[in-house]
């Protein structure tokens, strides 16, 4: 709500600059005429938020957009707030949304009248990874310890995560099924909040993305137990993958951008170009390797096909987790 306001003011401040920039150019290509709103499907401080703000800063620094890009957090109801907002923006050429996997799960779980097939795919920037974390003060050193501790807690083991039915809760239910565990899942507002509560001892484990927990890990406050990736994450070379340990648990999170239904094709082309520039940026490429992200760029129909395929996969995961 507040950031919306920003858009308005930035509009005013940037309008004069825009005017000057627009005058000499013989409007051949489409360019944003006012600041572009970047809706974030999650709260402040989490992985999605930090990433979106990083994108914004690179776009701004490298002048990849003719207009400022303004991030707006709409994290309420596992991203339902953001999805609903994007639906209401039909035909708008100045709104894009940074997505995560709740892009599939939230419309499947809640009756908010959103069909993601209607939205316009822009670009997939990266695939994020998941790691099982415990507090560094705990005695748990490896997966066996972990499973034993959860079983000993007899259903009272507290796993923190972002909203019910979101990525973290799916990974949790995968753990429950695989190891025959009974875990109490506590939803928080964002991944940053989860990591903080794990360090503070209010929950007992988390499945944070590496970027959310990295600061605490470097400060010696959190311990990675196992990664939900096909191969080891280079930032945590000593942390085994679930696959290595003999458990086929792999889950990843897409970090993409979509636009409202009915965005003009020229505008779509503009934003795709903008993200292509971003993908080629050195700062972004360094960030992905440091923060254990896979930069896996995808656009257009391929991206839409990927979205729909992932949605089907999540539909199965959800029915499995809610059935348990």
């Amino acid at each position: 709500m507040i950031n919306n306001f920003t858009r308005r003011i930035a509009l005013a401040t940037a309008a004069s600059a825009a005017l000057m920039a627009a005058l000499p150019a013989a409007a051949a290509d489409w360019k944003p005429q006012k600041p572009v709103e970047m809706v974030i499907m999650a709260g402040q401080g989490g992985g999605a938020d930090r990433l979106a703000r990083l994108f914004q800063s690179i776009i701004q620094k490298e002048k990849l957009s003719a207009m400022p890009v303004l991030p707006v957090n709409k994290g309420g109801g596992s991203g339902a707030e953001a999805l609903r907002y994007l639906k209401d923006k039909e035909g708008d050429n100045h709104t894009i949304m940074a997505t995560l996997n709740s892009y599939y799960t939230t419309p499947l779980r809640t009756d908010i009248g959103v069909n993601i097939e209607d939205f316009t795919p822009i670009a997939r920037m990266a695939i994020d990874t998941f790691v099982l974390w415990v507090n560094a003060d705990s005695d748990i050193q490896n997966l066996d310890d972990y499973v034993a501790a959860v079983k000993a807690a007899g259903g009272a083991w507290k796993m923190g995560g972002t909203g019910t039915g979101q990525e973290d809760s799916l990974v949790t239910s995968m753990l429950e099924t695989e190891f025959g565990l009974d875990i109490t899942y506590v939803p928080f507002k964002g991944g940053g909040d989860v990591a903080k509560n794990l360090v503070g001892g209010h929950i007992e484990s988390s499945v944070n993305n590496p970027s959310e927990a990295l600061g605490f890990y470097q400060a010696g406050k959190l311990r990675p137990i196992a990664a939900f990736t096909p191969d080891r994450i280079n930032v945590f070379p000593d942390t085994p993958t679930m696959t290595e340990l003999g458990h086929e648990l792999v889950y990843s999170m897409q970090r993409s951008f979509v636009a409202p239904k009915g965005m003009d094709p020229e505008a779509v082309a503009y934003y795709v170009g903008m993200f292509e520039g971003l993908n080629a940026n050195d700062e972004w490429q360094t960030y992905t390797s440091e923060k254990a992200l896979n930069a896996d760029f995808l656009t257009g129909d391929d991206l839409q096909a990927y979205f729909l395929q992932e949605r089907d996969k999540h539909s199965e995961l959800l029915s499995a987790s809610e059935g348990s």
């Binding site: 309420g76 339902a80 209401d88 809640t110 039915g165």
Partner: peptide, 25 residues
Amino acid sequence: VGLDLISGQPRLVFFDQPGFYSGIS
């Protein structure tokens, strides 16, 4: 009023007005 933080379900959306989805500020 608005979307429930924990479950994501809409609550007290009067007269089905989409404006109430984001709650009352």
